[in-house]
Nucleic acid binder design. Structure first.
Lengths: 334, 334
DNA sequence: GTGAAAGCGCTAACAG
DNA sequence: CTGTTAGCGCTTTCAC
């Protein structure tokens, strides 16, 4: 088993010092052409690859970015994270992923681990978290950016969209169509500012229209949870005509239960989603939802984080969302 | 900006040597209770966290596992990777992810990068790849395991299921119900052994029943691709009664187009999927598909890889799939 | 322009 | 049981 060649092996073969080899690799222009050629030849011949741990130890940079994601299972994060990753990969950084399972303590732990591992920067999802996490990031001076939510002037820059305003616009559209009794199936709001903001947005739209308060049921992502939530909602608000959901997965589940109950969508009940996942166009009827620029967001978050890692000032970025009007929302039957 | 505390800082504060602190952290039982207590107190007080680069440099182990995934966008990998990650996290390993975008060259490059970064082990998806990748893994003696496919006696152990047999069983079921003209919408087969095996399985089932050959159209994952493929299929095989699809996403797309064309499913056309994603139960009618034990597979792959990293012999593991009979497949109208 | 030498923070013999 | 002492492979002054 061939031992991995080291800088010294290359230096010996090229007849120079390790310092020179190091320079050739990191600041080629400082080394004179001829020496460099000899060194590079040796590097090739030996198939030398620098040892990242050793380099990181002294350089205090790992070319690694960490990300703490609630869960990768959720399609909601997949597209954005992939875009984030693509940018990192193009810039020769690698992605170290940790998942928190929506647990604040687990997230804090993951951030600690990522810092200990020398992540050059960290991606966080959403705003809700123990302030201690931000303190840690600050004292260790590890740059971070928040995505999937937006807040100007927060402890770290954010690259995201306005969850509340987006949902408010969607519900306002429902109101415009004549809906008066609307209810909501939300994802768990505890420790989840995105979910909470969406509820707030829906609430605000109803208030502004002088309509009865929003009735909310929470559901997790398990199959059938949204369906059961719909049952409860129908029970609490028999005359509901519009059920807005915190995301597309929830909406698809609710719609399915509606069908099972013999309720036609949007004939007897309108249902809306949020995110515009591929799923939104695959269900019947296609979901009216809010389109979130996942890809743009992931890329922008990566650029912002990389800029911060390079010591550049980074500003928060608010991305626009747009209403995606399809078939699951229609005017209520009078 | 508080400098990160080092082993030495802890040692000084606890009045012991750095070696003792190191032992407390790595082999606690070797240190006497009292000393250990003092050390741990210092660790707490200083908020000490070991520097992984330094540790990795000497230990020649990074506690990091790499994974090269075609794309995280695809829900097909999400659940399995999350399960994989959960096991790693529980065992105090971290996941370094790279994506290949289904490009063999990009995958090879990613493996090289992962090795240079000292990944202790690498997860690969599927069997199809340049043999040079396996050679590299072998000469660098970095353990790897393949998931999402199965092959006994391959260059590296695999943890997966039998794509061909699963699809064959599904098509056999269709044949049993009376289908005689069946066609398939497959994902791209180039460089994708899973897709190819599924086509082979369907082909074999038809042959065994003495039915006409399978007509196949390929589609990528873009929205609408499966729908367009259905159009082409309908054109080529006007009397088709069953369209089997390489995965659930494709099936959902095909079903949607069928609806748009006024074809009832399964009344006039049966459609089946593969994977049993959450999506399968959210579309109307619910998809008949093949259930793949994503979670079990991800966990088993992680365990196998970790065992290999620990120097234990690892065997390939064939996981069972099961037919998931729902509403999108029914006997054809005669 | 290049080499010598001093570590980065940690682990692992080897003594005591 | 605990301290001393070498490095791990690389980068980076500081001389020449």
């Amino acid at each position: 088993m061939a031992k991995t060649p080291t800088l010294e092996d290359v230096a010996t073969r090229a007849g120079v010092s390790t310092a020179t080899v190091s320079r050739c690799l990191n600041q080629p222009d400082v080394v004179v052409e001829e020496t460099r050629a000899r060194v590079m030849e040796a590097v090739e011949a030996l198939g030398y690859a620098p040892n990242f741990s050793a380099r990181a130890l002294v350089a205090k940079r790992t070319q690694t970015i960490g990300a703490v994601i609630p869960t990768m299972e959720n399609a909601i994060f997949a597209e954005g994270i992939q875009a984030f990753q693509d940018v990192l990969q193009a810039e020769r950084y690698m992605l170290l992923v940790a998942s928190s399972g929506y647990d604040p303590a687990a997230e804090a732990e993951a951030v600690r681990t990522l810092i200990a591992r020398g992540a050059d920067g960290i991606l966080l999802i959403g705003l809700d978290r123990d302030p201690a996490v931000y303190d840690l990031l600050a004292t260790q001076s590890v740059p971070a950016v928040v995505a999937w939510a937006f807040a100007s002037g927060g402890p770290v820059p954010s690259v995201g969209f306005d969850n509340a305003a987006s949902m408010r616009a969607l519900v306002a559209q429902g109101v415009r169509l004549g809906h008066k009794r609307v209810a909501m199936i939300s994802g768990r709001t505890e420790g989840n500012d995105r979910a909470r903001a969406r509820v707030e947005g829906a609430t605000a739209a109803l208030r502004a229209a002088g309509l009865p308060d929003l009735v909310v049921e929470e559901a997790d992502y398990a199959t059938g949870a949204a369906a059961d939530a719909l049952d409860r909602l129908l029970d609490r608000v028999p005359d509901v005509t519009l059920v807005v959901c915190g995301n597309d997965v929830l909406a698809a589940g609710a719609m399915q239960r509606a069908h099972a109950l013999g309720l036609s969508v949007p004939g007897q009940l309108s249902v809306t989603g949020f995110d515009d996942l591929g799923l939104a166009r695959l269900v019947q009827p296609a979901l009216t939802t809010v389109r979130v620029p996942h890809k743009t967001m992931g890329e922008a978050a990566a650029r912002a984080l990389l800029a911060a890692v390079d010591g550049q000032a980074t500003e928060s970025l608010l991305l626009p969302t747009e209403l995606c009007l399809r078939d699951s929302l229609a005017a209520p039957k009078s």
